[in-house]
Write a protein that binds this DNA or RNA. Sequence first.
DNA 1: CGAATTTTGTACTGACCGATACACAACCAA
DNA 2: TTGGTTGTGTATCGGTCAGTACAAAATTCG
Lengths: 193, 193
Amino acid sequence: MARPREFDETAAVESAMHAFWTHGYEATSTQDLCAATGLGRSSVYNTFTSKKALFHRTLTHYSGQGLAGRKAILESPGTATERIAAMFDALVDDELEHGRRGCLVVNTLAELGTPDDEIGEALRRDTEKQLALLAECAREGVLDGSLRPGRDPADVAEFLLSTISGLRVMSRRGASGEAMHAVADLALSAIAR
Amino acid sequence: MARPREFDETAAVESAMHAFWTHGYEATSTQDLCAATGLGRSSVYNTFTSKKALFHRTLTHYSGQGLAGRKAILESPGTATERIAAMFDALVDDELEHGRRGCLVVNTLAELGTPDDEIGEALRRDTEKQLALLAECAREGVLDGSLRPGRDPADVAEFLLSTISGLRVMSRRGASGEAMHAVADLALSAIAR
DNA sequence: CGAATTTTGTACTGACCGATACACAACCAA
DNA sequence: TTGGTTGTGTATCGGTCAGTACAAAATTCG
């Protein structure tokens, strides 16, 4: 072995993540990334190869964290309806507390679409996992009687993810917490028993 | 007077609009705009002042067109529920036909947030007008009996706009037409009698 | 201690960015 | 025809972009 790193790689990824999150992919320059992480250019390129590779790293980190948090909420005790309501509450709270950054995945989808590269693949994978998580919850809701039966759980999952995306966009445009809660409540009323 | 323009200004705005729409604000260079419009740099800058000014022009053009189309649908004959369903159908058809560009306003909100300048103002104004249109429809729906009463029309409008945004993001990530229709149907079921 | 290996800081690369300068072309009014 | 005015094409501006070259610094192992 040789000279050791003078920084924490995960911390650097998180700093870069916030830079990309608030300013978007294109508008975040490599200089911005150096400033955000506190690293020199050499360290950034030596560790992360390229801007795009660092963004990909950032995206998978974000996705992993987000999915873990959502999974924790959707697999907590209570009826499926209660858990979905808690998920919406957490989303709104998060937006109000952290300055309406929206969702990195949604922001990236809107800015870049679904590119035919590893970025697009990361976006697709995140979407699939979110849908799987939500569909499972929809199935449980029918069993525990808190969700209306008769709908395809996959459709319910798509509806919930669409509502989540809608709320993220709402937050991005500065909508009030009350308005966001009202939207979540209406969405819930479409599927709750 | 002097030498006349050799191009149609509105056509140039529409060409620029499609460039911004598909690639985003930052990723569209002034060279791209010249190529898309067929104009030289001089003509672009002489006519539109700057990239940002052209984008603003593009955004207001988009907003005006979009609002006019939506207004035509939401003020057509039929119950409010039928008209809202027609609006969703038109949105899904539009996305399937035109290559999943999403909505320029949603894409811009996600990429730039709500900046404290004329761009942000244009985004806010579009949102306000969309909400006003949808709220009026929600009010009519209660009167004609096709929408469930008891909800604040402003909340219903926020819910519908959120669903629209969600569908636009869905389209951007490549969701199927069936999935989008299912989401629209579920959203409608939350507010229809 | 020194040889090998990796990180770090500084300087730099060519390419492209948005925007401009300016000569010239094209038109109208007189 | 001529002078005034505006549009267009070409060349170019300084600045910033993502990425790299390379030497000095810092560590482990022999």
